[in-house]
């Protein structure tokens, strides 16, 4: 059985910016533990000499030329904004600086 705890699930929810009710926390802990149990088949394998594959195709280096192309108009950009002010996206106050 996976050693996933309720506290860990709560911590992960915090990292993912989700709020879970107590009931959801219990349910998710059980469901995630079930999936992780399956994954324990993988953990049991000795793959220390195997290189990871992050991507299925190896296309080499892909670059574009440094050329300016037209972007979106500001109206189009802000049309979908939940809140805009003064040509910018408006958000509630930010607590704490950027990492």
């Amino acid at each position: 059985m996976s050693d996933l705890t309720r506290d860990e699930v709560a911590h992960v929810a915090h990292l993912a910016r989700l709020r879970l009710s107590d009931e959801e926390l219990d349910r998710f802990t059980g469901q995630l533990a079930q999936v992780l149990d399956h994954a324990n088949d993988l953990r049991a394998l000795d793959l220390s000499n195997v290189a990871p594959t992050a991507h299925p195709v190896d296309l080499g280096t892909v670059l574009r030329r440094d050329e300016v192309s037209a972007g979106l108009g500001r109206d189009a950009v802000l049309a979908s904004a939940p809140a805009a002010e003064d040509g910018r996206f408006a958000v509630p106050r930010v607590l704490g600086d950027e990492p």
Binding site: D66, E67, V68, S69, G71, L72, R74, R88
Partner: peptide, 26 residues
């Protein structure tokens, strides 16, 4: 550079807000 790291929007200081943006950099 003339353009941004991952898209063709202009890399220039001091433009009007949100005028040098496209689907990629947004």
């Amino acid at each position: 550079t003339a353009s941004k790291l991952f898209c063709g929007c202009a890399n220039a200081f001091g433009a009007e807000p949100n005028t040098q943006v496209c689907p990629v950099c947004l």
